[in-house]
Simulated assay, not measured.
Amino acid sequence: MSNIDLNILRDQAYKIACDHGFHDKELSNEHFLCLVISELMEAVEADRKGKRFDKGKYEYNEITECQGWLTAEEKFINVFNRCIKDTVEDELADAVIRLFDLAGMRNISLELVTKDMADGIDDMAESCKDETFTESIYAISTLVSRYDGLYDFPTAINDMIMAIFGLAKYLDIDLLWHIEQKMKYNQFREKMHGKKY
């Protein structure tokens, strides 16, 4: 994972968001951070309901999704909806994608998180071992407000991304894979993903 350039994923997430109307009007950093926090809260709800990704079920569904009249895109969407959508993994991926989008919109480099990926993620994962899932999510959700006046906004965004990757590592989640799947899924969705904002 240390070879991954997160700025490329940032640019892809921002482009997908632009293509789907999320930047048709100028909105504040607080607006976009609220959407990040909403994704983190959806992860909490998924955790409360026990909705976790099942790799075996996913692989089985990939093989058996064989209706001849469906396109490859439709098959992908069907399997994603059955096996990934609304799981803890999916919601954590959504939170990072929204942070990538915000970083892309504000031209924030993600070199800090990319450079410190291995050590930083290990440190963040270690910090999760004495916390409940909700405590870890709370810590991530409040990071920007706790950093206010201490660190600049780009550092806070980089650290939020690193913290989510750390939590994912602690939970043994291949977050990068889930981000890639969700970004692919998002490309096929309607404008604003059918939402008001």
Rank of each mutant, 00 (worst) to 15 (best):
F76C: 05
I4T: 15
A93C: 05
F80Y: 15
D159R: 14
S136G: 11
N78T: 14
L110V: 05
Q187T: 14
K169Y: 09
L175T: 04
D90V: 09
L35H: 08
Q67E: 13
M117S: 07
A163F: 14
V113M: 12
S2R: 12
K15P: 02
A13M: 04
A168S: 10
M41R: 14
K196T: 00
K196H: 01
V113R: 06
N29H: 10
Y151N: 04
F80P: 07
M160K: 12
K51L: 13
Q187H: 03
L110M: 08
D5R: 09
E42W: 06
P154L: 05
E45L: 15
F133S: 05
S109D: 02
V79K: 08
C34E: 11
V88K: 01
G56P: 12
A17P: 01
K195H: 02
D47N: 15
N107G: 10
R98L: 02
E89Y: 12
L176D: 03
N158K: 08
A163K: 14
K129E: 14
W69A: 05
I157K: 08
E74M: 13
R189G: 01
M160I: 06
R98Y: 02
D54K: 08
Y185Q: 03
C128Y: 14
I173H: 01
K129Y: 12
S127Q: 13
I161H: 12
R189F: 03
E89P: 10
M41Y: 12
H20T: 07
F133R: 09
V144H: 00
Y138R: 13
L70I: 05
I121S: 10
A139V: 10
Q67A: 03
V88E: 04
M162V: 07
T64P: 09
D54H: 12
D116K: 10
D24R: 02
E89M: 10
I16L: 02
A46Y: 05
D54N: 15
N3D: 14
D123L: 13
E59M: 09
I179T: 04
I140N: 06
I37Y: 07
K15M: 05
E42Y: 08
M124N: 11
L112R: 11
I157E: 07
D19R: 07
A95D: 06
K196P: 00
F153P: 00
A13R: 00
C34T: 12
G50E: 13
H178G: 01
T134N: 15
H178E: 01
K196W: 00
V36L: 07
K85W: 12
N107Y: 00
D94Y: 01
K184F: 03
H23Y: 11
S28I: 02
E42N: 10
A125C: 08
V44P: 00
E39Q: 09
N107H: 03
M105H: 07
Y151E: 04
A46C: 10
A163E: 12
F22P: 05
V44S: 06
D47L: 14
D94R: 01
D119R: 13
C128W: 15
L99H: 01
N186E: 05
A118L: 11
E59L: 12
D148L: 00
D148S: 00
L175Y: 07
R48I: 11
L143I: 01
C34V: 09
T114M: 07
